[in-house]
Each structure stands twice: as C-alpha cells, then as structure tokens.
Design a binder for these strands. Structure first.
Length: 271
DNA sequence: AAGGTAGTCAACCGCTGTACG
DNA sequence: TCGTACAGCGGTTGACTACCT
C-alpha cells in the first residue's frame, strides 16, 4: 500500500506562482508564521496550492533573506570545495552560504560552476590520444550524483584516483567521500575546530583535506580559480565555514552521545 | 525575420528520515 | 514495535529567454 498523496493534484493549482499568490502566502506567513504544518497552510491562507508547493515557494523565493544570483568567488570556492568533498548534498552546501537555497546552489552548480570545473579539469588533464580503458561508465553505479548527470560523470572521470595520488589531491569519488563522511569518527572534543582540523591526521575525515595547512590546501584551487593568492586567507574562510565558534561544544555533545548512530556524523551535526 | 539550439531557473516528483500516536 | 503523516532532500522537468544560423 502506497502513501496517500499530500494533496489532490487534480484540484490544486500547479505551475508558476502569480504575484497575487505570492503576496497571499507572504502576508499569511508574516502574520501567522508557518505553524509547523505546511500541509494545512494553503487552506488557512486561502491558497489553492499543494502544501509542498507553498513550502518550496516560501523557502526558495519569498523568504526575506533570500539572495539570487551574483555569486562571489568566495562562494564559488565554498561550493566547489564542498561538492568535491561531500558530493551533491545541496542543503548542507547551501547552509554554509547565507541567503542561498539548496535549489539555487544546485542550479548554479549545474548551469555554471560545473562547466567551469570541467574546463579546468580538461585543461589540466588533456584527453589521451587513444581511448581510455577506464571510461566514465566505470564509475560507481551507486552514485546518483555522478551517474545521473553526464556532466558530473565527465567531471569526476577527469580525475582518476591515480591522478589524485600523483597530484597529491583528495579523491573526487563523491559517494565514497559521502560514506566516509557519514562514518567518520567523532573527533576529540577537547580541541577547538580549527585546531582539530589542522591536527587531524585521519585520512577518513574529509575536512582536513580542505582546511589543513601546507600544500594540501585547496589542491584544486589553482586549476579552478587560476590560483589562490592568499592561501591562509582562503583557509580561514573555509575554516570559518565549517567550524563555528562553539565547535568544541558541538563535538562534545556528539561525543557524549556514545550510542550515536553512524548517520549522526559530521554532516548531520553541521546541519 | 524566422527557426533552431542552448542556457537558465522555478517548480514538480518521488524518495528518505523522523516524530508521534 | 508498527504504521502514518509530515518535512526535507536531491534529481528531473519544462517553460521561458537569449543567442546563433
């Protein structure tokens, strides 16, 4: 038995929102809040829309703190670094960019940033004269983020694990990294976030790949952005992104939950 | 000017995780 | 413990626009 639909799709309006509907939803939320129930909201607000549609419209468009377009190079760096580490977990990536939504970041990556990354990859690793014995199809079939998009597959295929090792780079196998991320052990709670990140030696944890100092810092950055002038500054930007001031407190709470499931790992903690 | 193609982005779909009775 | 309802997420679609031939 399947789940009952959240609304009667035949009777609710679909498609683009009119300015009147936007105003209706906006004024209702401003006056009453969401009320913890999106399904019931359309009826209360007098909207002939599905609750999910209202939620999406509010979160992605009507929310007062939303920013559209005008991505900065710093934001590009953050998106790109996180994508290469955790894959297409857009909500996590968006949560590190104030005013950005997961949908917006996803669209931005798919339409602009991915091409930029692929161009950089193609320039760094020109295609061999003979066909590669390991085509993109050899990538993990379990990866929706890779296999569902030829662009992603090509982007990922541009970097083999061997190349990563040769270049001293972190791996681009997003599902693998995701698995590592979710299974990553809770780090010591006695050190602050930045110090822990710099001190961590466990290769199973992705954050040190990004924020640890020295030549390993942003290993793709030179390819992608044409060089980071001030690596220390860039490190601080990303460190601030990943590690809030109460990092030790956060990890302490996580460590206290000794029976924490693997899913309660790094990314869930950060969200 | 007209038709075709590519790019963009809002919106939808279907699935998963979680809270709750 | 199980079933249900809901929120949230990521992938995909389709309408619209810009650009090219």
């Amino acid at each position: 038995m399947g789940r009952a639909p959240c609304c009667d799709k035949a009777s609710v309006k679909r498609g683009p929102w009119s300015p009147e509907e936007d105003e209706q939803l906006r004024s209702y939320v401003q006056r009453h809040g969401i009320g913890g129930n999106w399904i019931a909201l359309p009826q209360k607000a007098g909207l002939n829309r599905c609750g999910k549609s209202c939620r999406l419209r509010w979160l992605n468009y009507l929310r007062p703190d939303i920013k559209h377009g005008g991505y900065t190079e710093q934001e590009d760096r953050i998106i790109w670094s996180l994508y290469t580490s955790i894959g297409s977990r857009w909500s996590i990536i968006a949560s590190k960019l104030p005013g950005r939504t997961d949908n917006d970041v996803k669209n931005y990556w798919n339409t602009k940033l991915k091409k930029k990354a692929m161009a950089a990859a193609a320039a760094a690793f020109p295609a061999p004269a003979t066909p590669s014995p390991q085509p993109a199809a050899a990538l993990s079939p379990t990866s929706s983020s890779v296999t569902s998009s030829s662009g992603d597959a090509r982007f990922a295929a541009a970097y083999t694990p061997q190349q990563h090792q040769q270049q001293g780079m972190m791996h681009l196998d997003a599902p693998q990294r995701r698995q590592q991320t979710e299974l990553a052990p809770v780090p010591p709670a006695t050190v602050d976030g930045g110090a822990w990140a710099a001190a961590a030696l466990d290769d199973d944890v992705f954050l040190p790949d990004l924020v640890a100092g020295g030549e390993q810092l942003f290993p793709y950055a030179d390819l992608f952005f044409g060089g980071v002038q001030d690596r220390a500054t860039a490190a601080m930007e990303l460190s601030a992104c990943y590690f809030p001031n109460n990092m030790a407190e956060m990890w302490g709470a996580a460590a206290a939950a000794s029976d924490a499931k693997p899913q309660q790992g790094l990314c869930n903690t950060l969200t």
